[in-house]
């Protein structure tokens, strides 16, 4: 029983980490109706920026706390600059084009960011140390043999993820920008016709997605180290947004938790029967099953066309 609870907890924690990346997908999709293939590359670039800036800032200030704070704001500025560049160089020229064109553009942005990120920041492994505790905690040792394993860094990541979701939910539901974002997502032309500046909205949403990518990059980067493979983590978040619904922020969280728990339990309890290594495709299988029943995902908006 103790091991089951441990696996369940591990899955929930991993799920929150997936959800952090899934949120980036959801944000862009909500605002532009485009699935942003570049989200993984944005996580990589954001983490690279944070790692390099923090190394410099910590050395300059001699303080890990101040160094990291300075590096965080520098990275935020960097991601906003990146969002502006993407809008100016790519998106602005694709207003009112087919969604497929925008989709392919995000694929192009992926390759550019992957390549530029490594060219500018280098291909070595970098460290982000924000002082997360690494040693595991063993709870309820009196009840379960060996106790229940809990990693404090996962717990902190989960709290950060929850705070981010709350902030984004408020942004979308209760602010003028949030309403504009939703209007743009609904119909570019209609939004423009009532005076919503499409370009500015895209900059805002890509900036917010950039900040979400930065938070995800800091959490994942402090866990794994920062290097090229970080961009592949985004692939693990794909089933999360399929399951939760591409337009729902809470859906990304719940989808993350379901996928996280599902893949861990499946790997541990079913993996040994089929030679192991099933957690990746199990997550996709789970997402596909949901699509059969609810094509818009668990929390996605139902799309109804009048004919």
């Amino acid at each position: 029983m103790g091991f089951f609870i441990e696996t369940l907890l591990g899955g929930l924690m991993t799920g929150v980490l997936y959800a952090l990346i899934g949120l980036g997908f959801v944000l862009i999709f909500k605002a532009s109706g485009v699935f942003n293939f570049a989200q993984g590359a944005m996580v990589l670039v954001a983490a690279l920026a944070m790692a390099r800036f923090s190394a410099w800032a910590i050395e300059l200030t001699g303080s890990m706390l101040f160094g990291n704070v300075i590096a965080f704001f520098m990275s935020v500025a960097f991601m906003i600059a990146l969002a502006i560049a993407i809008e100016r160089l790519v998106l602005r020229h694709l207003v009112n084009q087919e969604l497929t064109t925008l989709l392919m553009a995000t694929l192009g942005i992926t390759y550019v960011l992957d390549g530029l990120g490594q060219t500018v920041f280098g291909s070595s492994v970098y460290t982000i140390d924000v002082g997360m505790p690494k040693e595991p905690l063993f709870l309820f040792q009196d009840v379960f043999e060996g106790g229940i394993l809990l990693n404090p860094d996962d717990l902190i990541a989960a709290l950060v993820g929850a705070a981010l979701v709350a902030a984004l939910a408020l942004l979308f539901q209760y602010t003028k920008v949030g309403r504009a974002l939703r209007a743009v997502a609904d119909d570019h032309q209609a939004a423009q016709s009532v005076g919503i500046p499409l370009g500015r909205i895209w900059v805002v949403v890509w900036s917010v997605a950039g900040v979400v990518a930065l938070v995800a990059g800091i959490v994942w980067g402090s866990k794994l180290g920062v290097q090229f493979s970080l961009s592949t983590v985004a692939l693990r978040a794909l089933p999360v947004v399929i399951l939760g619904g591409l337009t729902s922020v809470p859906g990304a969280i719940l989808g993350g938790l379901i996928i996280g728990v599902g893949e861990k339990l499946s790997e541990v309890y079913l993996g040994s029967f089929v030679g192991g290594g099933i957690e990746v495709w199990f997550a996709y299988a789970l997402a596909l099953l949901v699509l059969l029943v609810r094509p818009e995902g668990l929390f996605g908006e139902k799309h109804i066309d009048r004919v």
Binding site: M104, L107, G108
Partner: peptide
Amino acid sequence: IRGLAVAG
């Protein structure tokens, strides 16, 4: 060097 790519 990693190539730069445009539009997919």
